[in-house]
Design a protein around this nucleic acid. Structure first.
Lengths: 274, 274
DNA sequence: TCAAAAGTGTTGAGTCTACACCCATGT
DNA sequence: ACATGGGTGTAGACTCAACACTTTTGA
């Protein structure tokens, strides 16, 4: 103990060359197109928050919200702070998506980015863009086509298309290499794809989909969320039975739409850690 | 473009305070106890590579292999290098386990660790310990008991027990807080638990278990690997049918044990990305 | 010969899919 | 009235755990 104290006194962490640490966050929300008919459920779209960079590098290109990790905060705290700065809202369901550490991913120097994925509730989908930069929600879609992933982000007349190819390293790490020029800044096309594939996988097994909704919701809303993310539709009757495992009735009902009111449910707390 | 070039010329990344970046790796292998009977399959144990630290801080405590990320390598490359230095073997199935960035996780200062999980094939389980430090394989087991995870590492007469509790952050990030004193260095008990839970979950759905075995293997071997990791046994007949989806016959057979020889299988390459 | 593992077949319980059908609502 | 979503029931296909059974080997 004594010698450890002495060791720490002389130890100078500043004396080593070291990379900088940043975080980038893929923020999802589900947005509704305007309804055609008063009765009909509006179409839902999965969208991602993107920032048009106002500064170099990649000035005027679209990038993920993110920034450097400060000395007095953990990496997730930095991620939450950045999202709050951009949207004014605290995200939920934050989870680690991966480390992106390519040697030349940032022209400013050696910057390692810890990427996170998080979700904003439907009701909170505000576009603030409080920084100098412009923030916008882009609809996201991913298509697979002869061994390529085609990632498309659309906002009105802006359409950003990136093509990526799965690459498997010696040690079995999977990454996605950006083919040709991506319209996105840095390696953000790769980060978004990685994040999206994780989100989709979890959504299929009823993970994370509750975070898109308020505390009380109808099963139809929940189903719509899952379908929007996975891109697969299922019969309502069957969805209802599968979902029953994860939800419980609140006793309340929805109403005011031009059809039979629906029971409101809440997420059932899963007992047992794991 | 012109202005971007100018921007980068004046930009000095060194002028910002920044944390250091390290990586810690949880290396798994499956080891066999000595057999009682000439016919009987030896018991298998899942084990983790641990290093007894020869230097401060946490001198003489057991820690994960790991170290600082150099300027000329990516984080996964650093992880592979560290494992090679310790074992002499290139690991497979490397995957990102999480970022550990607690403000006081390392007494030397602000050090962020990107943890990885990886697997060594059965046949390669060498204990090198090429560094000054001593490297040993510890049998790992995790028990759940009234909301606590009890992580136990055993090597001969050394038994390291850590108790952890699941903690859920505001933003929904799950972490495991170490209760009382852990006999492991740094926050490595938390890293190991996080990694183990990920490994177990993947093993249940036939992920990663192939990486513990050579290219050709019998279904019984594969089953044993899965059972060793998940702690759940299944009937051989049923396992065989479930596994058939993931394997294909090689045409070769095993032999030389005191019983009927078994078909050798290889992992079937899953078509279609995803 | 026999212990031990390899491998096949079967049965009954449970789950999933698809589809048919009735219910409640606000315009 | 009626379009629209809410909600239940059910037959057939499929999956899965459990168990009984046969085969093959080396000592």
């Amino acid at each position: 103990m004594e010698s450890e104290k002495k060791f720490l006194e002389v130890y100078d962490i500043e004396s080593y060359d070291r990379p900088s640490v940043a975080t980038d966050i893929v923020v999802y929300a589900i947005r509704e197109d305007d309804s055609d008919s008063f009765r009909k459920d509006p179409e839902k779209k999965l969208s991602v928050l993107m920032i048009e960079r106002g500064e170099h590098p990649f000035k005027n290109k679209w990038a993920l919200p993110g920034g450097f990790v400060r000395m007095d905060e953990t990496v997730p705290q930095a991620a939450i702070r950045e999202v709050k700065e951009e949207t004014g809202v605290t995200p939920s369901a934050l989870f680690c998506t991966g480390v992106f550490s390519g040697l030349s991913r940032d022209p400013r120097g050696r910057i390692i980015s810890n990427a996170f994925t998080c979700i904003l509730k439907n009701t909170e989908s505000t576009t603030a863009g409080s920084d100098a930069d412009r923030a916008e929600w882009f609809d996201i879609s991913v298509r697979e086509e002869d061994n390529e992933y085609i990632l498309t982000l659309v906002k009105d007349d802006i359409s950003l298309v990136s093509r990526l190819r799965k690459a498997e390293d010696v040690a079995g790490i999977t990454s996605y290499s950006i083919q040709a020029d991506s319209p996105l800044a840095f390696d953000h096309a790769e980060i978004i794809l990685t994040s999206f594939l994780q989100l989709r996988e979890k959504a299929e097994s009823f993970g994370l989909i509750f975070d898109f909704l308020p505390a009380e919701f109808t099963l139809a809303e929940l189903q719509k969320v899952q379908e929007t993310i996975t891109g697969r539709v299922s019969a309502a009757a069957n969805f209802r039975r599968k979902a029953s495992e994860y939800v419980e009735e609140t006793g309340n009902t929805s109403g005011g739409a031009g059809h039979r009111p629906a029971m409101l449910y809440r997420k059932k707390v899963q007992k047992n850690a794991e």
